[in-house]
Simulated assay, not measured.
Amino acid sequence: MDDIFADPPEWQERALCAQTDPEAFFPEKGGSTREAKRICSGCEVRSECLEYALEKDERFGIWGGMSERERRRLRRQAV
């Protein structure tokens, strides 16, 4: 699997999450995703982030304002 930190996509430098606490985007099981989603809602690269997570099949964390469960649902609807 690619290491996103070895050669991060250009859009990641502009992501709001890069300027905040990463723990908000990887909550413990059952933890709140509200803060991460709030940050994502104002991010200019939200769509690039979501596209990346779907393409890389990210299994953990909030990407593009969506949890893994929400991304899974989105994938199923697209099929």
Rank of each mutant, 00 (worst) to 15 (best):
T20I: 10
L74Y: 12
S41C: 10
R59A: 15
R38Q: 04
K29H: 03
G61Y: 10
R14P: 01
Q77S: 08
R14N: 03
G31V: 03
C17E: 01
T20Q: 10
V79Y: 09
F25R: 03
Y52D: 02
E58F: 10
E55V: 12
F25P: 04
A78C: 08
W63M: 06
K29R: 05
R14I: 04
D57T: 15
E10S: 11
A18I: 05
D57C: 10
W11G: 11
S67D: 07
I62N: 01
M66I: 08
R34H: 02
K56H: 14
R46E: 09
R14S: 08
E23R: 04
R46F: 02
E68V: 02
L50V: 02
E68T: 02
C49Y: 01
E58D: 05
R59L: 08
R69P: 01
I62M: 01
D57E: 15
I62W: 02
W11T: 08
T20G: 02
A15M: 06
L74Q: 06
G30W: 09
Q77E: 14
E28K: 06
S41I: 06
K29Q: 01
K56S: 10
E10L: 12
R75H: 04
Y52H: 09
D2G: 11
R34E: 15
C43G: 10
G31I: 07
W63G: 00
D21G: 11
R14E: 06
L74I: 04
S67A: 14
L16M: 11
P22F: 10
K37H: 03
E68Y: 03
D2L: 14
C40K: 09
T33R: 00
D2A: 13
F60C: 00
S67W: 04
W63I: 03
C40M: 00
R73M: 10
E28Y: 05
F25V: 01
I39T: 05
G64V: 12
P27D: 00
L50D: 08
A78Q: 15
G42N: 00
W63E: 00
R73L: 12
F5Q: 08
K56L: 13
K29V: 06
E10H: 05
E35F: 12
T20S: 05
A36W: 09
R72Q: 12
C17G: 02
D7S: 13
R34D: 12
E28V: 04
F60W: 13
Q12E: 12
M1N: 07
E51I: 04
K56R: 14
F60I: 06
R38S: 06
R71V: 07
V79T: 09
Y52F: 14
F5C: 06
W11F: 15
R76I: 09
S41E: 12
Q77I: 14
R38H: 11
